[in-house]
Design a protein around this nucleic acid. Sequence first.
DNA 1: ATGCCTCAGCTCCTGAGA
Length: 254
Amino acid sequence: MKLATWNVNSLTVRLPQVLDWLAANPVDVLALQELKLTDDKFPFDALAQAGYLAQCFGQKTYNGVALLSRASATDVVRNIPGFADDMARVISATIDDVRVIGAYFPNGQEPGSEKFEYKMSWLKGLRDWVRAELVQHPKLVLMGDYNITFDDADVWDPIGLKDTIHCTEEERYHLRALIALGLHDALRLFVQPAKNYSWWDYRDFGFRRNRGLRIDHILVSDALKPSVTTCVIDKTPRKNERPSDHAPVVLTLL
DNA sequence: ATGCCTCAGCTCCTGAGA
């Protein structure tokens, strides 16, 4: 079974690239973030022709998430139960006996800002809910755009970006707290090349210079960990003519 | 230096992203 996550930064703009990528990478599940469209504009037909069912949770202008799958998805849940939120950031479903959570974590903008405080409370809400989900669904994958780096190895300039957004100790504390629930950073289960990032700024030739961050992650539960055979960041779509600023992350389960 | 890209929208500028 293959699962992937990709922040597409507008599904309207990126749909052709998503279809191309799925044709070349026929994964079983693809979690999308930053759709930037409402459900009535979701391209169900084009994806169905490509062989994918879709569960979507859209929103005008910002945010918006979806789960694409070859098999049917059951028990679909939108956002975090118990955490009131007017932004469309999370969608979950059971697919092929695996509980899949696709999430677009808040950006946080700047430490100390109102948006940063929202990010912190959102992270706490997510953790409390995922803790309960793991009891109900031991085979669980939590993947998406986390907007948090684990440590300096995830940052192209750890000194220059120290304590800036995505790199603060508060954010990393919450990320480690998720891990402490019994989850594993799938990419780090394997030896990785240095400077292996999932996002690059559009400005200043960020991708060409590999000035990036690893902020898109796939976390797998204890029960799934023995089944993980590969986890890679696919930088190919970042080389497209009008790319998303994020690259997909792909997980293979036995 | 509060921008450099990119995207959406009450679109010819602004807010947000990260």
